[in-house]
């Protein structure tokens, strides 16, 4: 019987993106670069009809760039859902209003804390707010500088997380990604 031992281009791309995602989440604050960028590529490696998504804001999350994120996400087979039910939330968090809207997201239950949202948000690395991260995956602490996210977000995050309940966050800047799971303590410097 012939077994396929060479991955297709799709296999390789989704595998590589996942590798960066798990790497980023295992080492919060560490900047990882994905081979193919953007939210669509992330969605392709994670989403399908067995999960749900929600988009807050758009025009590919206000980068006003070409494309249609909603359509790309739906093309994975994943179903649109209300924010309070969505597994994967793609949200631009540039305004206090957007942060406020996001606060309805699901944080899981004590029996099933995994039934919580994962948030992907556009950000700019290297400029903006200085954050000190500590917790699992981080030796002592690490400091990152993140822009493009309203200052109120970090307070909202702290309030939403009642560990192990909470949500997991990815900051995405083009092909670059930083993971901040709910287990990470974030101090705004």
């Amino acid at each position: 019987m012939s077994l396929s031992i060479l991955p297709t281009a799709d296999d390789s791309r989704t595998n590589a993106i996942f590798e960066e995602l798990i790497w980023a989440l295992s080492r919060p604050g560490l900047l990882r670069t994905m081979p193919a960028g953007g939210f669509t590529a992330i969605a392709e490696s994670l989403l399908d009809r067995e999960c749900t998504f929600h988009v807050l804001g758009d025009r590919v999350l206000d980068g006003e760039s070409a494309g249609d994120l909603e359509r790309d996400l739906a093309a994975t087979g994943a179903r649109r859902a209300d924010l309070a039910q969505a597994d994967y939330v793609f949200a631009a968090l540039r305004s206090a209003q957007a942060v406020d809207d996001l606060s309805r997201l699901r944080i899981g239950t004590l029996a099933y804390p995994d039934e919580a949202a994962t948030v992907f948000t556009p950000a700019n690395f290297g400029t903006g707010q200085q954050l000190r991260l500590s917790g699992p995956g981080i030796r002592d602490s690490v400091t990152i500088t993140v822009g493009g996210i309203d200052a109120s977000f970090w307070q909202m995050r702290a309030k939403a997380i009642r560990y192990p309940l909470g949500f997991d966050l990815y900051l995405v800047d083009g092909d670059d990604v930083v993971g901040i799971p709910r287990s990470t303590k974030v101090e705004v410097l």
Binding site: L3, S4, L25, D114, T118, D168, P181
Partner: peptide
Amino acid sequence: AFNYGFLDESAKRELRRKMLKAVAV
């Protein structure tokens, strides 16, 4: 006959989602 890595894409995506949650908590 089989996918690369035996598991089909939908199985891999599920495992990816679950592994990320495992790392997060």
